[in-house]
């Protein structure tokens, strides 16, 4: 549940979601569910030349299984907190 909990903390922040088909979408994280399905708002495609038709998709639902990477805002990465959380997770909870 660590990723799920962590991503929930990032709701409202700007992230870039890179899909397994190389499409990268930047947007405000609206919500995430237990399957790591991601909803973005105010989205824009990073490589607009390659994907012109995706130019102004306002809100977007991305299936968790097709996500390759999520690029996080640096200010959203609290190393101390993540250390603790991963240790807790490793201990089972």
């Amino acid at each position: 549940m660590l990723f799920f909990s962590y991503f929930k903390e990032l709701v409202g922040r700007e992230v870039t979601v890179e899909l397994k088909n190389d499409l990268a979408i930047k947007g405000t994280l609206h919500s995430v569910d237990q399957y790591l399905n991601i909803k973005l708002e105010n989205t824009r495609v990073v490589d607009q030349d390659k994907y012109p038709h995706m130019l102004s998709v306002r809100n977007c639902f991305i299936r968790g299984s097709v996500v390759r990477y999520v690029q996080l805002p640096p200010e959203g990465v609290d190393v101390e907190l993540l250390h603790d959380a991963t240790r807790r997770e490793a201990r089972g909870g």
């Binding site: 989205t43 038709h53 130019l55 102004s56 998709v57 306002r58 977007c60 639902f61 991305i62």
Partner: peptide
């Protein structure tokens, strides 16, 4: 992926 697209250019 699914999204609402309202841009006439797209």
């Amino acid at each position: 992926l699914h999204a609402v697209c309202r841009d006439p250019e797209a």
